[in-house]
Amino acid sequence: MNSARGSVAGRIPETDEGLQGDELALKYDEMQRHIRDQGWLREKVDDILAADITSGSVLEVGCGPGYLGLEWIKQVTGTVSLTGVDISEAMVRRARKNADAYGVAGQCAYECGDVLALPYEDGRFAHAFSASSLHEWADPVRALSEIHRVLRPGGRYCVMDLRRDIDRTTFQFMKANIAAEMRPGFRSSIRSSYIRSEVEAVLRDAALTTAAVTEVQMGIVIAGRKEA
């Protein structure tokens, strides 16, 4: 791990197949539940709310076990419906179970799908968000273009992820709060994540040139609005 502003190692792409199988989904669910219980999802929820994603039909890309979207639903006051999509069927099953536990299953739908070819018509959603998935997308330009495609004109998006140049103290803190068996995957996720200049290049190629890119302590946030 290199320093945030020193020499940064080149990006090493990670699998684009997600966390497949019930065993890995269970371990990831346990890790995300711990993160939720410590209050560490709140910053991501705040980023989504700051992007003015507070009502309407909303898409969560790479929803995993669903905790982020479910915590977001708890904070919004407007009428919302959430559709979560994930490449792992095991994660989709976990998300459905968790939505039941939160008591909001009637507001949620979870489906298996690939961000490179989202199974939705143009303009299907009012807004969209995603967290911790960008570094896994085999073709981020195509993925972001797909998210843009399924948004209505004026729809807002918020894409959050790790970044490769986080400082060592932050890296060690995050690693220490992950179960030992999940730490190799965390390290590979850091190595495959993007730095700001790389994200800005991706956005230009995806024609999302009006998006704002912000570095935060534990990663990076991309927020914008589909032009009318």
Rank of each mutant, 00 (worst) to 15 (best):
V115W: 09
A206F: 06
T54K: 08
F186E: 10
L203Y: 11
H34V: 10
R191Y: 10
S197A: 15
A143S: 13
S7V: 12
S193A: 14
A176G: 14
E89N: 07
L162V: 06
E146N: 03
T83N: 05
Q107E: 12
A201T: 15
T209A: 11
G103S: 05
K97E: 14
E71N: 13
G103I: 06
C63Q: 03
K175V: 08
H148T: 02
T170M: 11
V61N: 08
G154M: 08
E121V: 10
S7G: 05
R124H: 15
G154D: 06
I190C: 12
I73Y: 02
A95C: 06
L151R: 09
I147A: 02
R149S: 05
Y102A: 07
C158R: 02
A223P: 00
V213I: 10
R42Y: 09
G219L: 00
A212L: 12
S192P: 06
D122G: 03
P153F: 04
A51M: 03
M218P: 00
R149C: 07
R204G: 11
G64C: 07
D114S: 02
A143N: 06
L70A: 09
R152A: 10
Q38G: 02
S132G: 06
R187E: 15
I195D: 10
A95Y: 03
H148F: 07
S130P: 07
D122I: 07
R93C: 07
R42P: 01
V141P: 03
P65C: 02
A50V: 03
E23Q: 12
E200S: 07
A4E: 15
G113W: 06
E181W: 02
A105E: 13
T15R: 13
G56T: 05
S188K: 15
A138D: 10
E17V: 00
M31A: 14
D22L: 13
H148V: 01
G106H: 06
I190L: 15
P65L: 06
L49R: 04
D86H: 03
L162M: 12
D161F: 06
S189L: 11
D29F: 06
E71W: 09
K97Q: 14
R183Y: 12
R196K: 11
P140G: 02
A4L: 12
Y110P: 09
G154N: 08
P184N: 07
A207D: 15
S133Y: 01
S3L: 15
H127P: 01
V85S: 05
Y110I: 09
L49A: 00
E198T: 11
I220D: 01
A101L: 13
I53M: 05
R149E: 08
V216P: 00
R156C: 13
R93Y: 06
M31I: 08
E17F: 00
G185H: 14
G6A: 14
D37Q: 15
D37F: 10
R149G: 07
